[in-house]
């Protein structure tokens, strides 16, 4: 039945198989009122196209930028977003939540 959430990893695999560069972002930890739980994923391709969600919209733009850099340099990175981070205001996560996101290139 139609309940099942779209499997973003399935999309990541089909993009890779179609020859596209792919990066995967995964929420590793959340504190406070983060909109999406740990384990939530966003899949990004080399053109910036994305499926999935790590925050319901607040930080996706910043994550996509980091994903494109990870695609370019191949280095995985662990990103902090939240009130302790200056970037928080920049990316609009002003709801008091904090989260950490792991971004890696699909090899």
């Amino acid at each position: 039945m139609m309940h099942q959430e779209e499997d973003v990893l399935q999309t990541a695999l089909s993009w890779k198989e179609a020859g596209r560069d792919v990066a995967i972002a995964t929420v590793t930890s959340t504190w406070g009122s983060s909109p999406r739980p740990a384990g939530s994923q966003l899949v990004v391709d080399g053109s910036g196209a994305m499926v999935g969600s790590v925050s319901g919209g607040c930080i996706e733009g910043a994550v996509v930028r980091e994903a494109l850099e990870a695609i370019a340099d191949g280095k995985p990175r662990l990103l902090d977003f939240g009130v302790t981070n200056e970037q928080a205001w920049e990316v609009g996560l002003a709801c008091g939540g904090k989260l950490q996101v792991y971004v890696e290139r699909l090899e």
Binding site: L9, L13, L106, E107
Partner: peptide, 9 residues
């Protein structure tokens, strides 16, 4: 992530 691991997931 390795594509082979992704495929197994």
């Amino acid at each position: 992530m390795k594509a082979s691991d992704l495929s197994r997931l």
